[in-house]
Nucleic acid binder design. Structure first.
Length: 300
DNA sequence: AACCAGGACTCTG
DNA sequence: CAGAGTCCTGGT
């Protein structure tokens, strides 16, 4: 079934958004299992002209499948209107040329997004996506050869490292978080999931104001301002988030402050103030514009 | 082989 | 409260 909203599926899949690792690519088809309510559904998505073409296998209706795909790929977001906005701002005007069809890649599972985002901190895209994919294969539930991310309570029980595995299990099969290459983030990831079972109710977050939601996820270990903004943008669809790291700081300072060094905190405030409801999309487009246009090499 | 990139956290002044 | 040092791994 084709959904007639402009999207570049490959670009969206490979853009490093911390909602989840890219789906499994086979030929020109991206596939993954998604929990829709309680039901596992395998989705296959591919590019068809400027649009997304999908089918699915699972016990849900066509309409439920359609709204799931529309949510994950943010297909109701009006890209034409966004491109008009970009072209009306001199600093941003070139960006849509380099990133046409790039959309948010939203998390069907906010918990997976939280763990992925913690794992992405001080890490490369290649490394955190491999770690999260490993975690899914080892401890996730398998459906038709695809793996869902483990649930919160299952994740909370995973061993941290070889030492703990030997201590509590008597032997070691490297069945632990550190063996997935997450390094010192392992305790953050597990503590965060344990906190989520006990104290923080994820279903409350969508009802909160941005500030309140931000303060709430900041409480989780391993979550600082950048990671909190990623969690809210990619995991909960708060489009007013402007996740700011060293690259966004360099880009913003180049485009708006004549290259003058600005603190990451200031860049975040500036982005949220300046771009409002488009902040998340502007951040996404800035990063990929810098990558593709050669700006990144210029300002590193 | 030494060194660097990448955010959060902890300790210091 | 700002600034510096540390954490782990994969890349040069």
């Amino acid at each position: 079934m084709i959904i007639d909203s402009l999207i570049d599926l490959n670009l969206t899949q490979t853009s490093g958004q911390t909602s989840q690792p890219p789906w499994i690519k086979s030929g020109d088809v991206f596939s993954q299992v998604v929990m829709v309510g309680e039901k596992p559904v395998v989705f296959n998505a591919k590019q068809s002209g400027e649009y997304l073409d999908f089918d699915f296998k699972g016990d849900i209706t066509q309409n439920e499948a359609l709204s799931t795909m529309k949510y994950i790929y943010d297909l109701d977001f009006d890209l034409d209107k966004f491109y008009k906005y970009l072209s009306n701002h001199a600093e941003l005007a070139e960006m849509s040329r380099f990133c046409r069809g790039l959309r948010l890649f939203l998390a069907p599972d906010p918990f997976e997004c939280i763990i992925s985002s913690i794992c992405s901190a001080n890490n490369s895209i290649k490394r955190w996506t491999k770690s999260i994919s490993d975690i899914k294969c080892r401890w996730g539930c398998e459906y038709d050869g695809f793996y869902a991310f483990p649930g919160i309570s299952d994740f909370s029980d995973i061993f941290l490292d070889d030492d703990e595995e030997i201590d509590l299990c008597g032997r070691c099969d490297s069945n632990n978080l550190k063996s997935c290459g997450v390094g010192y983030r392992a305790p953050y990831m597990r503590k965060a999931s344990q906190l989520l079972t006990l104290e923080t109710d994820l279903s409350e977050i969508p009802k909160m104001s941005y500030e309140e939601a931000f303060e709430t996820v900041l409480e989780l270990p391993g979550v600082g301002p950048k990671v909190a903004d990623c969690i809210l943008l990619y995991g909960f669809n708060f489009k007013e988030a402007f996740p700011s790291d060293v690259w966004i700081k360099r880009i913003v300072s180049h485009l708006y402050f004549e290259g003058k060094d600005i603190s990451v905190a200031k860049v975040r405030d500036f982005g949220m103030e300046e771009f409002g409801e488009y902040a998340g999309y502007v951040q996404l487009y800035m990063f990929h514009y810098a990558r593709k246009s050669g700006l990144m090499e210029k300002i590193r």
